[in-house]
Write a protein that binds this DNA or RNA. Structure first.
Length: 262
DNA sequence: TGTGATGTTGAATG
DNA sequence: GCATTCAACATCAC
């Protein structure tokens, strides 16, 4: 499910399928996932247009239209694109679909309707308004350290907040904490600078590797690197066991003993 | 049958 | 202004 690397995979999929194809018709089946526009208006705005570029920042993907406006795709927890030509392949929870002149369709499949679709007139103004942080793979160490400085709260809460850094989700946060041997509930003001730098490095390494693997939530390899995320599983020291708890309001796995609480 | 799930937001509280 | 907690969103899988 979509955190930064998964959204990047959606972006690649979108580029391979929808880019530079004129939209003959747009059909909205369900208004609910649109935030700043009605389904009817979305149909009108998108019909006859062509996507000419894409941009991703954290978990947000934007499709640039040939009139220099953008469509924001946010995939919530369960959404996905599907490109198909046979109507029998229509995804079960398709909320809207672009029908291209070649007869193929790009459907937006979204079971839980947690997605957020917006029509954006001015991208820079929009990103500034929602105060979206710098992409987790783009952010520099200096900016990361500056953001984290003078903050209290938990490490996990910080990493999950998209206004700080855009792109980290529950799984990658747990993974980063595990690899850094730090408890996700550690207080930011107690973590030494050296450790913060390590967190930054590991975060980017993990995201980059995941992105290179092009993960897709329906097709994660069975030996994927977060497989330790199970209760009772052993850490590399052979004795610390993984426990399940809640940090920053989210289900959290960590290896007690292996991961130090600051 | 009940419960929780890879996300975000807004309201309420401290 | 911050940090935290909670509810809401809607569906599926176990």
């Amino acid at each position: 499910m979509p955190e930064l690397p998964e959204v990047n995979t959606f972006k690649i999929y979108f580029e391979k399928t929808a880019l530079r194809q004129r939209i003959k018709k747009t059909v909205v089946h369900d208004d609910k996932i649109f935030r700043n526009i009605s389904g009817g208006d979305f149909e009108k705005k998108l019909t006859g247009r062509t996507f000419i570029d894409t941009y991703r920042r954290g978990k947000y993907m934007f499709g640039k239209l040939d009139n220099n406006k953008y469509v924001q795709f946010h995939f919530g927890m369960t959404c996905d694109f599907k490109y198909y030509s046979d109507i029998a392949d229509k995804p079960r929870h398709e909320r809207f679909v672009f029908i291209f002149e070649n007869g193929f369709r790009l459907g937006f499949d979204c079971p839980r309707k947690f997605a957020r679709i917006n029509y954006i007139e001015n991208l820079d103004e929009y990103i500034a308004r929602i105060n979206l942080g710098t992409d987790a793979l783009e952010i520099s160490e200096a900016e990361f350290l500056k953001k984290i400085k003078n903050k209290k709260g938990t490490l996990k809460g910080f990493l999950l907040n998209q206004k700080n850094i855009a792109g980290m989700g529950n799984l990658y946060v747990d993974e980063t904490c595990y690899q850094c041997r730090i408890h996700p509930a550690s207080r930011l003001d107690k973590i030494p600078l050296k450790k913060k730098k390590e967190i930054f490095d590991k975060m980017q390494n993990i995201l980059q590797r995941a992105l290179d693997e092009r993960p897709h939530y329906k097709g994660y390899p069975p030996d994927w690197f977060w497989q330790w995320r199970e209760e009772g599983k052993l850490a590399p020291d052979g004795k610390s066991k993984v426990e399940k708890t809640e940090v920053a309001g989210r289900t959290t796995y960590f290896a007690k003993g292996w991961q130090r609480l600051y």
